[in-house]
């Protein structure tokens, strides 16, 4: 069943179109920065972008930071929102269930497929970012001697940089799992994939909005988007683990609760689509 869902997801032209569109923005940013040499000052604009001019191999991180606030969550919400509701709308859900694909198993398979999508998307963005970064900008060959530069200004060895980049990618994936959980939960509530995706996005927009509001500060630590950009802290010296750990815990709680709700709803629901 899991293999079936993966095959369905990755044989779908739309999946690859989404990933392609997702990569277009960072590439455009890279080209513009290359042509104009204008980058935001450190601390402004997307993180890491200012460092790219001196070291192109940091561009994968800049690319992730560019797509993280909006593009990536939209893509994840659309795919997750489509997972069950899309089958319901197409009418294929009933045929999967009478096959019979058990409801719990189907939900797990959908979840795995969405996670695979998140993983592939993030890796592709990082990989394309690396290729673009190293071809368009001066890529300092990251030897142990030269290394990279941390956000705090001290040097990082190549090993440290690679390790922290992979950790950052992992952190972004976990952040997106929260979005996926919202999408999957809404997807079991409705037969309209659009409604499910928009529901998940509405949560994220509301969360980002509340985050900027001082009056909402008491609930700020519990907003799903609160710690999304904490992966930047992985590049401080020493690593600032506080927000990263809180972010992981928060996403864990959201994912756990929402998946339990999705399961409870889907396994007891009348399939009338």
């Amino acid at each position: 069943m899991i293999a079936v869902e993966l095959r369905k997801l990755f044989r779908r032209p739309r999946t690859w179109a989404t990933i392609a569109v997702l990569n277009a923005l960072p590439v455009l940013v890279a080209v513009l920065v290359r042509l104009t040499d204008l980058v935001p000052r450190p601390g402004e604009g997307p993180p890491f972008l200012s460092a790219v001019l001196t070291n192109g191999s940091l561009f994968p991180l800049a690319a992730l930071a560019i797509v993280l606030p909006l593009f990536l969550p939209i893509a994840v919400a659309v795919v997750a929102g489509d997972s069950v509701a899309g089958e319901a709308q197409a009418g294929t859900l009933r045929y999967l269930l009478v096959r019979p694909a058990g409801r719990t198993l189907l939900l797990v398979a959908k979840l795995v497929a969405v996670v695979a999508f998140v993983l592939v998307t993030v890796l592709v963005v990082a990989a394309v970012g690396y290729v673009v970064g190293t071809t368009l900008f001066d890529a300092q060959p990251l030897t142990a001697a030269t290394g990279g530069t941390s956000v705090s200004g001290t040097g990082l060895t190549q090993q440290e940089l690679v390790g922290r980049t992979l950790t950052a990618i992992g952190y972004v994936v976990v952040s997106m799992l929260g979005v996926a959980a919202f999408g999957l939960f809404f997807s079991t509530l409705t037969d309209s994939p659009l409604a499910a995706a928009l529901g998940a996005l509405a949560v994220l927009v509301a969360s980002s909005l509340l985050f900027t509001l001082d009056a909402a500060s008491p609930i700020a630590p519990y907003l799903p988007t609160r710690y999304w950009l904490a992966f930047v802290d992985l590049f401080r010296d020493p690593i600032l683990w506080r927000d990263v750990v809180r972010g992981l815990a928060l996403q864990g709680v959201y994912v756990g609760v929402l998946l339990a709700a999705a399961w409870a709803n889907f396994t007891t629901k009348d399939v009338t689509s």
Partner: peptide, 15 residues
């Protein structure tokens, strides 16, 4: 259900 074949309210397939 593996021993049952069903067609419910029209066919559906991945287009």
């Amino acid at each position: 259900l593996p021993r049952v074949g069903a067609l419910v309210e029209g066919p559906a397939a991945y287009g």
